[in-house]
């Protein structure tokens, strides 16, 4: 019996591991693309490669199913299940973000170019909703600071103002005769908050591009603030001198502040913020857990607010 010894194979014939791995990856990617092309708009999820980040938490992830089926995105309905059902109508390609206001380099950036030119990272963050529930979500994105630096804000720019797409034909909530908010959805950050390394623009979750209901193709994630600060499907970022108007603050200024930092000591006027329910934990018999100051990111961000009365600037 002839047994071929391994030495018969010339070292030069062996395909290096990284080459065959990348070929597999390429084929998987190509298969993914072929599949994506066959799917209707909105159901496409393309893989994204991202490096790990030391900012990630090691807490148990909320399931992808829960992250993508339990959403507040009032442009597509007020029930938690509405966005997953209705957001497929949003056309996320082509997509550009207009950057204007007090910047040296105002521009319109296409989402593909932005993703290609950014170093994507996986950031596993806690997300605390103002309603009293929370999740742990593996976002894929890049620091907002990277984009801010690229457009060179002027010295007079003190705030960044964000706007969601304003498309009644694609967003049923915008056609409602009783608008829930003054559309389009708007949010804002102080420039130092925008530049903070924890603040990211997310383009994906669970290693794939964002599903529409989570704010495709690009959204803000500010993990120490209530979830409503994380504006979805961004089409415009303006750099301004004065604190910009924000959608929820305009709707009920006594309930939703501009800062909206997670704070267990400052209750919503109608409910307590001391505790939260972690989605996917315990099912019907979920146990409340204490809410942490700045959603557990106090060490990194408390300095931004030193000397401020957080009861007044809620």
């Amino acid at each position: 019996m002839l047994i071929r010894r391994s030495s018969d194979i010339l070292p030069s014939e062996i395909t290096p591991r990284n080459v065959y791995l990348s070929r597999r990856q390429w084929m998987a990617g190509a298969a993914g693309l072929a599949l994506a092309a066959a799917l209707p708009e909105g159901l496409r999820a393309a893989p994204l490669s991202a490096s790990k980040s030391s900012f990630s938490t090691d807490e148990k992830l909320t399931s992808r199913e829960d992250v993508t089926s339990y959403n507040n995105y009032y442009e597509f309905g007020v029930d938690k299940s509405d966005p997953a059902e209705n957001a497929g109508t949003l056309k996320t390609s082509p997509w550009t973000i207009k950057i204007d206001g007090l910047v040296g380099k105002p521009q319109e950036i296409g989402i593909e170019d932005l993703i290609k030119s950014s170093a994507l990272e996986e950031r596993i963050y806690r997300m605390r909703c103002v309603e009293g529930w929370s999740m742990v979500i593996p976002w894929v994105g890049f620091p907002l600071a990277d984009l801010v630096k690229r457009v060179e804000p002027l010295g007079s720019a003190k705030y960044a103002a964000f706007e969601t797409a304003n498309r009644p034909s694609e967003m049923p909530g915008l056609r409602s005769i009783f608008p829930v908010l003054d559309w389009p959805y708007r949010e804002g950050l102080r420039l130092d908050e925008a530049m903070h390394p924890l603040t990211i623009l997310a383009v994906g979750l669970y290693g794939e591009t964002l599903p529409n209901q989570n704010g495709a193709p690009i959204r803000l994630v500010v993990p120490w603030k209530y979830g409503f600060k994380g504006i979805k499907s961004i089409t415009r970022i303006s750099f301004v001198e004065k604190q910009p108007e924000t959608a929820w603050n305009k709707q009920a200024p006594n309930e939703y502040g501009f800062y909206a930092n997670v704070n267990p000591h400052v209750d919503h006027p109608r409910w307590s913020q001391a505790t939260e329910r972690r989605i996917g934990e315990g099912g019907l018999f979920v146990k409340r857990r204490p809410t942490l100051m700045f959603n557990g990111y106090a060490e990194q961000v408390a300095g931004l607010y030193s000397g401020m009365d957080l009861r007044k600037f809620y």
Partner: peptide, 15 residues
């Protein structure tokens, strides 16, 4: 549905 975990992501709140 609640006992069989079919009330969505936040079953207690749904119930």
């Amino acid at each position: 549905q609640g006992i069989n975990d079919r009330l969505g992501a936040d079953p207690m709140r749904y119930l």
